[in-house]
Amino acid sequence: MQSRSLELLVGFFVCLGIAAVFVLTFRVASLDSVGDSGSSYTITAKFENTGSLARGASVKLSGVRIGRVREIGIDPETFQAVVSMEIDGSRNNIPSDSNLKILTAGLLGEQYIGLEPGGDPEPLKNGSEIAFTQSALVLENLIGQFLTSFTQKEPSAAKKSEESAEPKAAPKSDGPAPAPAK
């Protein structure tokens, strides 16, 4: 009688606690597919450099979130990063010649993938690979590039900065211009 309601209350408390542990593990830790209700299809793309792009990052079309990064791996032959993305199943008319850019939200914000639509009437399907990608901006490379062009213009000023700048300036820098991967 009395002990039954006590057991019921304690049972409720323990359930609530365990539910909280599950909510935390599934919502906070990335074990679920948040917001992707319903169907979705997967596309892949190769990048020279993914920067700090992480699993779960958004894929945006004109600033609107249409999917998220599911996995980031390495192509064993070309050593390029292979990013697979889950795209919302309702966005089924995206041209297959669209291109992808790794962008940054704000100055210090997280990195996400921006999709710029092309003109091909053929839409992306499950398993499609996007050929046109642009890598993430790597700050060191950018500074190196800037310094190299700077020394070429003003040889006199270059002498001072040469020692510190030279090792950083990679001879083959990843340009921000869109370039076909592979």
Binding site: V21, L24, T25, R27, V28, A29, S30, L31, V34, G35, A54, R55, G56, A57, S58, R65, R68, E110
Partner: peptide, 22 residues
Amino acid sequence: DDGSYWSQINQSMHGGDIRDML
């Protein structure tokens, strides 16, 4: 944005954090 509230949490935390909390 509701989605980015959660997705940001997802990106920077993992099961280990919950384990450590427990």
